[in-house]
């Protein structure tokens, strides 16, 4: 039996990071997705491109700029200074900021698609039934876009669990602070602890498989209740 005492800390850290990141992403991503789905502004394509950038950029590029931004001489360092620190790099808070940026497209895109699929009609119907735009957003748009929220949540969570490059650049490998599972595997391999590496890697493979399969099954159940926003004849 391989020595596994050190494994619980990266697991806890990974789950905490992924949960907090997903929560922040839903809060930030929903209004962005709504705006992208409904705005006719020319800026829309520019913002959409910025949101999509992490899909194509090497994580090291994003990580490099984040390192500069979060470091003592960047805005992150200034923020840290207000709270008595001197940098957000190599801290858990810095990891959250990096993960949010890196996983943003995975949350925004499915929610945006779901909002776009609604069309204008359900909101018009709601307005003629006296619902204000804010009321209609919560009582009609969000419930009808549920499949998009489900997909966005799962992808955001899973993608954060699986990231490596950005974390390595801005988080380093500090146990209990920034050493997440993907880094732990790298560590085990580097130090030739193959048994531990196998265990963690296999565990993550199984985890990812189960999460994505569950999502597909849930989507199918929601989908069976009708895929378009309104009932046509």
């Amino acid at each position: 039996m391989p020595e596994l005492a050190g494994i619980w800390s990266p697991i806890r850290l990974t789950l905490a990071l992924a949960s907090i990141t997903t929560l922040v992403l839903l809060i930030l991503g929903t209004p962005i997705a709504w705006w992208l789905a409904r705005s006719k502004s020319l800026w829309k394509e520019v913002v959409a491109t910025l949101v999509a950038l992490p899909l194509v950029l090497p994580p090291t590029v994003l990580g490099f700029y984040l390192l500069v931004a979060l470091g003592p001489n960047g805005p992150g360092g200034w923020v840290a200074g207000r709270f008595g620190g001197h940098s957000l790099a190599f801290r858990f808070e810095g990891l959250v900021i990096g993960s949010v940026l890196y996983s943003l497209p995975f949350v925004v895109q499915p929610i945006r698609n779901a909002f776009e699929a609604l069309g204008e009609r359900p909101l018009e119907v709601a307005a003629t039934l006296r619902a204000s735009p804010w009321d209609a957003f919560w009582s009609v748009a969000v419930p009808l876009a549920r499949p998009g929220f489900l997909t966005g949540t799962v992808l955001g969570f899973a993608h954060t669990v699986g990231e490596f490059g950005v974390v390595l650049m801005i988080g380093g490998n500090i146990p209990g602070e920034t050493k997440v599972l993907s880094i732990a595997i790298y560590d085990y391999v580097e130090t030739l602890q193959w048994a531990q590496a196998h265990l963690v890697a296999g565990g993550m493979l199984a985890f990812s498989f189960v999460v994505i399969l569950t999502t597909f099954l849930l989507e199918r159940r929601i989908g069976r209740a009708g895929t378009d926003a309104l009932n046509h004849r």
Binding site: R121, L144, R146, G226, D228, A229, L230
Partner: peptide, 14 residues
Amino acid sequence: PIGYVFQEAGLFRH
């Protein structure tokens, strides 16, 4: 204070 009936009913399916 209107009521509006659309061509395709527009019931909320949720």
